[in-house]
Design a protein around this nucleic acid. Structure first.
Lengths: 109, 109
DNA sequence: TTCGTCATGTAGCCAGTCTACATGTAGGCT
DNA sequence: AGCCTACATGTAGACTGGCTACATGACGAA
């Protein structure tokens, strides 16, 4: 997939994937790919700026760690992040419902 | 609603709303609003350029008419437009399925 | 004659995604 | 030693397409 249709939904994806466990950037990319059955491949040039944006917004908290000689920045969801995630989820519902109701094939009335 | 999340899905909406009957721009805006239960309000600065783009692409055919002294450009779906619509529909399925599978709340594993 | 609805259109802004590049470690293979 | 792949993060700049704001004009009602 990976069209620009993702626009506006990245935040939801990132917050969601961090809901149950903190992850670092590289692991987030893999998690998204795995969870979506390979459909989503987020390039690093999209991911890292987005993580920083969400951190600035207060939805994520990042922390540096060194594992096996490699530096990682691990992000976890903040309280505000959880609220934002809930908001993103209901926005997603509203979004798909609105588009779906238009796209749904219907017989000529 | 009406965030920029629409990006990439406008084509599908327009093709879909024209599937069963040709409409002119203004009527398309109303149809989208009605079908979505008021959730979608597409501004003219989005609609008209999109219609022209789809016409250039060969998915729509536009024709001028004058009704009650007012000029309208009525668009109808072409054969290529129908094919494109089918493609947009399956793309939409794939898209929502991918995002949904990530967003879906799940208990910690 | 003014206002609201109908009707179309464009210029320019803007935000977020993508491409391509840059940097560096670790481990395996030859 | 040298090379490659996987791991890991990051930035600059292009691109794209939806949005705001504006411009134009006809019609009917108050």
């Amino acid at each position: 997939m990976n069209t620009d249709a993702l626009r506006g939904h990245m935040d939801a994806l990132l917050l969601s994937v961090l809901e149950h466990e903190p992850l670092h950037g590289y692991a987030i990319i893999e998690a998204l790919q795995e969870r979506s059955g390979g459909a989503l491949s987020v390039p690093t040039g999209t991911l890292y700026p987005a993580l920083r944006r969400l951190e600035r917004a207060g939805y994520l908290a990042g922390e540096w760690a060194t594992v096996g000689g490699r530096k990682r920045r691990t992000y976890r969801l903040t309280g505000a992040g959880r609220k934002a995630l809930a908001g993103e989820r209901s926005a997603w519902q509203a979004f798909t419902s609105a588009i779906g109701s238009v796209l749904e094939p219907r017989s000529a009335r």
